[in-house]
Design a protein around this nucleic acid. Structure first.
Lengths: 238, 238
DNA sequence: CCTTCACCTTACACCGACTGTAAGTGTACA
DNA sequence: TGTACACTTACAGTCGGTGTAAGGTGAAGG
C-alpha cells in the first residue's frame, strides 16, 4: 500500500520540489489548502508522516507540532531554515521525531522519512478520542488510570465509532462490518451489543459517550466538561 | 525505572565524557569490556538504547548495527566523526535510528536519545529466537507465514524459555512464575502445559524446539538446519 | 533384563467469557 | 395516544482455557 506524506510548507516552490522528491520514490503526497486552520485538515487526512516547516503564516510550527502530537500517532519530521540548537531542542521536546535544516539533501530527507515510517509501522494502532485511548489489536480501552479489555464484537463497534468521529455511523455500516449485513441476524443483537459496550465504557468512567441518533445510527459525543459552554442553557435543569 | 544506555566507543576519554553526560541526566550507563566479540555482550546486557561509534577496533560499527538490528529491539544511535552523507545513508539503511556527528552538543545528544527511548517504549515487547517471534503482550507467536495466539499459561512458559536462551529453565522457576510454587498444584500440570505448548509450536512448524533436560528443566533448542554440522555423526542414521 | 523414576500423553470435566435469542420496557414524535 | 424505534434484562448454547486423573513411554542403573 502506498504511504501518504503530508507537506506543511508555505513556500510553494520548495513544496513542489519536496513533493516531487517524495513522489519519485513512490509515496503519495498531500498538501493543505490553507494555513488558516491546518489542524483539522491534517487530522482528517490521516497521513503516515508529515514534513513540517516551522515558519508558517498564522500558527507556528511549534504549536502545530505540540497540538498534533497530543492527538495523533503519525511521525512528524521538522524541516526548517532555523539552524540552531535551541529550536531543535524545543521541537524535539514537543514530540517532533526528527529535525532537519534547509538546505537538506533529498537523499537524507528520504532516508530519515523512511526510517520514521518503518519505526511507526511497528507501533500498535491506537485510536484516540479526547482522553480515551483504544488499542485496536488487543481490544484494550484506557481512560486515565482505568483500563479494560473489550470482547471482540464491542471492540469492532468502538473502532468504527472512533474512526468516524465526529460523524454518525449507521446501523447498516456496523452490521456490515461485523456480520456482513443484517440478512441472517436479528437487528436487536446490535442494540444488545451497544448496551454492553456502553456498560463497559461506563466501568472506566465514560458514561454516555456513545450517543444514539434516532433513525440514523450512533456516534461518539464529546465529554460534558468540554461542552459546558454550548450546553449552558440545558445543564442547569439537571 | 532507570533506563540503561550502552556506549560503544573505543576512545576512553570520549566514552567517559559521554557516560558522565548521560549519568547526570539520571540514566544508568553500561560499557563493554572488550571489542573482540561485542555482539553477545550487548545482547546479554539488554540495554534500552545503544550509542554506537562507527570506527571501532575489530568489527566495524556498520556490521555491528546490521547484526544487532536483526536480533534485538532497542534503538541504535550512531555517533561518529564521519561527517558525510554516504555513511549516514548507509547507517540509516542498516536500521540505525539516528545519526549524529562529532563534535555533538551534549544537549542535542540527550534530546535525540530521549526521543528514541520514548518512541521505543511504545513498541510492543517482541522476543526473538532464530526466525520465531513472540509478541508477549498478546501472546502471539509468528514463524514465517504462520502465526497463532497462545493461551496465557503457555505464553508465560514460552516467555521464560525465550528470555533465558540458551540456559535451561528449571521446573521450579516455571511453576513459581505461573502458580507461585508447586505447593497447591500437581506437578503434572506443568507437563500437560508443556505438551500443549509443543503441539501449538508444532502447528506453526517448530516441532521439537522445546527440549527436555532430564532432571533439570526445559530449554529451547536451535533448529536442525542450524546444527547440521555438529550433528553430522548422528543425523545419517535417521 | 528388569526395576524405577522422570517425563509424556490423552481423555475428561469444570468454569468462565462471549455471543445471539427472546421477550418485555422505555421513549421520541406525529 | 399510538406507533416505530431503541433499550434492557434474562437465558441458553458454544467454545476455549485450565486442572485432574490415569495410563503410557523411555532412559538410567543395578
Amino acid at each position: 500500500m502506498k504511504q501518504h506524506i503530508m507537506i506543511i510548507e508555505d513556500d510553494i516552490y520548495l513544496r513542489e520540489e519536496l513533493a516531487h522528491t517524495f513522489e519519485k520514490e513512490g509515496y503519495s503526497v498531500l498538501s493543505i489548502s490553507s494555513f488558516q486552520n491546518p489542524e483539522q485538515e491534517i487530522l482528517d487526512a490521516h497521513p503516515d508522516l508529515i514534513v513540517l516547516d516551522l515558519n508558517l503564516p498564522g500558527k507556528s510550527g511549534f504549536e502545530l507540532c505540540k497540538y498534533l502530537k497530543g492527538r495523533c500517532t503519525f511521525p512528524i519530521l521538522i524541516l526548517t531554515a532555523r539552524d540552531n540548537l535551541t529550536d531543535e531542542l524545543r521541537a524535539l521536546g514537543l514530540g517532533a521525531d526528527d529535525y532537519l535544516t534547509k538546505p537538506c539533501h533529498p537523499d537524507r530527507l528520504l532516508a530519515r522519512a523512511a526510517r520514521l515510517l518503518k519505526t511507526y509501522q511497528r507501533l500498535p494502532l491506537i485510536l484516540q478520542f479526547e482522553d480515551l485511548s483504544f488499542d485496536v489489536d488487543n481490544c484494550r480501552v484506557i481512560q486515565n488510570d482505568h483500563s479494560l479489555t473489550l470482547p471482540e464484537t464491542e471492540g469492532k463497534i468502538l473502532k468504527l465509532l472512533m474512526e468516524h468521529v465526529p460523524d454518525v455511523v449507521s446501523k447498516e455500516c456496523i452490521a456490515n462490518e461485523i456480520w456482513g449485513g443484517l440478512e441472517y441476524v436479528d437487528e436487536n443483537i446490535l442494540q444488545v451489543n451497544m448496551t454492553r459496550l456502553r456498560k463497559n465504557l461506563d466501568k472506566i468512567g465514560r458514561k454516555n459517550i456513545v450517543q444514539t441518533v434516532r433513525g440514523q445510527g450512533y456516534t461518539l459525543k464529546e465529554s460534558k466538561t468540554a461542552r459546558v459552554n454550548e450546553q449552558a442553557g440545558q445543564e442547569p435543569k439537571l
